[in-house]
Amino acid sequence: MLPLFIILGIGVGIVLVLISVYNKIIRLENRVDNAWGQIDVQLKKRNDLIPNLVETVKGYASHEKGIFEDLAKSRQAMMNAKGKEESVGAANMMQGALGRLFAIAENYPDLKASENFSVLQEELSSIENKIAYSRQFYNDAVLQYNNAIETFPGAAFAGPMNKKEQVYLEIPETERQAPKVSF
């Protein structure tokens, strides 16, 4: 009888370990997905603010056509983007355009003084900041996930579960510097 129990015990133990490894991979994958969702929400929010921003700036600096085109282009790219990498590419483009727009705004004191503009500027800078922090969290989540599926015992599961390594999101060098907004 005793050997039977031992074998049974070992069997149950192995099954428990398998379940916990499986769950760990799923949990970490969900974390990556949630982290991406967080970024996506901010990207969409920013996209929705662009027409409003363009409208406001046009009221003061209607001849700065180039920057409006850049923004429209990046907004279109954002809306057409499929998958994470395209979204991030479009987002980086938009961020660059916004940076240029805020630099141009320095030349228009009336624009800078308008309340509408300063509210939008705060909103957009904080979205940029939130995206930066979300990306950081995303990359942390990806790192943990990738480690889990590349090392034993997770590696043995990755194939059958059809789990592939996820990519990190590039963070532009300038982004981590806090946006300068004074009140």
Binding site: R31, E122, S126, K130, Y133, D140, V181
Partner: peptide, 16 residues
Amino acid sequence: ERYLVNITEAISFGTG
């Protein structure tokens, strides 16, 4: 205090 709320939200994103 929008500014404060925004900063806190960003930090909470960073920590998950």
